[in-house]
Design a protein around this nucleic acid. Structure first.
Lengths: 112, 112
DNA sequence: GGAATTCGTTTCGGGGGCGTATTGTTCTCC
DNA sequence: GGAGAACAATACGCCCCCGAAACGAATTCC
């Protein structure tokens, strides 16, 4: 892929999200979401914070927001009740799937 | 490109931006930036608002913020002084170029 | 030349994110 | 079992974004 194609892809992708009003996630939130759905579990607040290089409140707040949106859920780790395990949801899986399909679709339309 | 590869690309891309602390742009701001750098000029506040399906204050604020960051600049249209022409900057061009290169780099590393 | 339109900006009240510091709970270690 | 550590959540003050509405400047239309 050439840089010009990459930029076109990036533009077309973000354009559709903005145009359809689905751009409510910040890049940090999006990264948390994708990490949870792509990387092997379990995912904890501390683990996500360390992986993304951000503070823990950032993760807590991202989980609050995306939990409210139904894209992710939380569960206490019964083995160590200090931990919170971040879990996927059906709605979140559909959302992530749609993102992937959108990238594929826009990549297909790129000029050679 | 398969959906799984697209998601991996999306994750790796956003991850680097978050990790490097360069994720200060909202998706709307990013879309404005890419539109200005990829679509043929001239770009006006009204034109960008219509193209993105957002209100004009959104564009004004995006130009304020990205102008402060030096990624974009404004100029009065002397032919019709009601209009504001959005212009590219050297810093903005470098920033956009880096985004493209990052996508290319991450795409290269994708599993087949 | 005066009214109406167009354009970008500003104002307003409200919502959310940020980092730092603190809190409450749970666990570890001796 | 008590002190300290580890974990997630919360409190605080700050800043930015949001949409709707109002505003000032410039242009167009008759």
């Amino acid at each position: 892929m050439r840089p010009s194609q990459a930029l076109r892809l990036l533009h077309d992708f973000s354009y559709v999200l903005v145009r359809d009003g689905e751009s409510d996630l910040s890049s940090r939130q999006l990264t948390v979401l994708l990490t949870v759905y792509l990387e092997p579990p379990p995912h904890t607040v501390r683990g996500l914070a360390a992986k993304l290089g951000v503070t823990k409140p950032v993760i807590t707040r991202a989980l609050d927001t995306m939990g409210r949106l139904g894209l992710l859920s939380r569960r206490r780790d019964e083995a160590d009740r200090r931990n919170v395990i971040v879990q996927r949801t059906v709605k979140g899986a559909l959302y992530v799937e749609r993102l992937g399909d959108l990238v594929v679709e826009k990549a297909k339309d790129l000029p050679r």
